[in-house]
């Protein structure tokens, strides 16, 4: 039960961090860091454990945010929109995934398709400023985005907003719950087989598993989590804009995962929080261009830290523990070999 203990420790530490957080930083910023963590977790799951490199995680993020915003304007209460914000991107990811995986697309081609789909969504949403683009009572707004929708409220009580600090705790607990669920998923037979598919797709197929279906489901789960992050983001920012679908947003998610460490769940979350915070600090002081620093970090981490921060730390810790053993990880292909050290 080492895994269970490990997960429990992570959750306990995270819980304490959540309580301490507000005394270190304003909750408004903290909340968005958590939301980004959740978004990174979604890609960390499908990429790190399913071997699916998605260039368009922002598509699901944006779709979740838009689904929430548009439904919230129409409904005026946040419960149904909140669920739609998860369901719509999940369904979209399922259809897209089915199209790709049943077509046996892999690797680079998968990357291109997800990227293109993101671009299509961006271009479409960006060109919907006209009055003819309406869903119910909500204008899509094009470049303007959709402002002025109902933000998250206590289910059934539209006037009881979950706002500011309560919203922060809501997001933090959501992240912990999702994390726990995903740990469970990975430890389940479904998760084991997903990892096996990542390692050797053909072999798993020959063993009689329907690889295409399993990958599609995993992809849809990733889409649902990204959509959840988008929903929370919409509530946080109080506006959704086409920029949510941008390539820059997709790129950032990938960077978070790389820097944090693939093949772990905590890695992407920590990567996202650190880098998003760094970007926020750099953006505030305006001395250095934040793009420049982020680019530098990405290049350096690919070259010198190909396994990411969290796995590297784990590795160091292990090596310290097993001092007798000679280890030479060298420059290995990025791919986590074991999932025990999440």
């Amino acid at each position: 039960m080492g895994e269970f203990r490990h997960a429990a420790t992570v959750i306990a530490i995270a819980f304490v961090a959540m309580l301490i957080g507000p005394s270190l930083l304003d909750t408004y910023t903290l909340t968005v860091l958590i939301i980004y963590g959740l978004l990174a977790l979604s890609l960390g799951l499908i990429w790190g454990f399913g071997g699916i490199l998605c260039f368009g995680q922002a598509a699901f993020f944006g779709l979740g945010a838009y689904a929430y915003a548009i439904a919230a304007i129409n409904v005026g209460e946040s419960t149904v929109p909140f669920l739609l914000g998860i369901a719509v991107p999940a369904a979209f990811a399922f259809v897209l995934g089915a199209m790709m995986f049943y077509g046996r697309l892999s690797d680079v081609y998968l990357g291109v398709i997800t990227l293109v789909v993101t671009l299509i969504l961006f271009k479409f949403v960006n060109s919907t400023a006209g009055p003819e683009y309406v869903i119910g009572t909500a204008r899509l707004g094009g470049f303007n985005g959709v402002p002025g929708f109902q933000t998250l409220n206590v289910p059934g009580y539209p006037n009881w907003y979950i706002y500011d600090r309560s919203f922060y705790y809501f997001c933090a607990v959501t992240l912990l719950v999702v994390y726990a669920l995903m740990r469970w998923l990975i430890a389940s037979p479904f998760g084991r087989i997903a990892v096996a598919i990542r390692e050797n797709e053909q072999r798993v197929e020959l063993m009689g598993y329907d690889v295409r279906f399993r990958k599609t489901v995993l992809f849809a789960i990733g889409g649902a989590i990204a959509g959840l992050a988008g929903t929370l983001f919409a509530s946080w920012a109080e506006i959704v804009t086409p920029g949510l679908f941008s390539l820059a947003q997709s790129a950032e998610v990938i960077v978070w995962c790389i820097v944090g460490g693939l093949g772990t769940l905590t890695g992407p979350v920590i990567g996202a929080m650190i880098l998003a915070f760094l970007k926020f600090l750099l953006g505030q002081q305006g001395q250095f261009d934040s793009t420049l620093i982020l680019g530098l970090i990405l290049v350096l981490s690919v070259l010198f830290l190909p396994r990411g921060v969290v796995p590297s730390i784990d590795l160091l810790r292990k090596r310290a523990g097993l001092s007798g053993r000679r280890t030479a990880p060298g420059r290995r292909r990025r791919r986590a070999r074991s999932m025990a050290d999440v």
Binding site: W160, Y163, D164, R165, S166, F170
Partner: peptide
């Protein structure tokens, strides 16, 4: 009503750790 947003207290947020929340001023 915008007033509710700001005076919203822990009442409804018991389910989501609202007891820790402070009213946002």
């Amino acid at each position: 009503m915008t007033i509710d947003r700001r005076t919203f207290l822990a009442a409804g947020s018991a389910t989501m750790l609202g007891s820790l929340a402070m009213p946002a001023i």
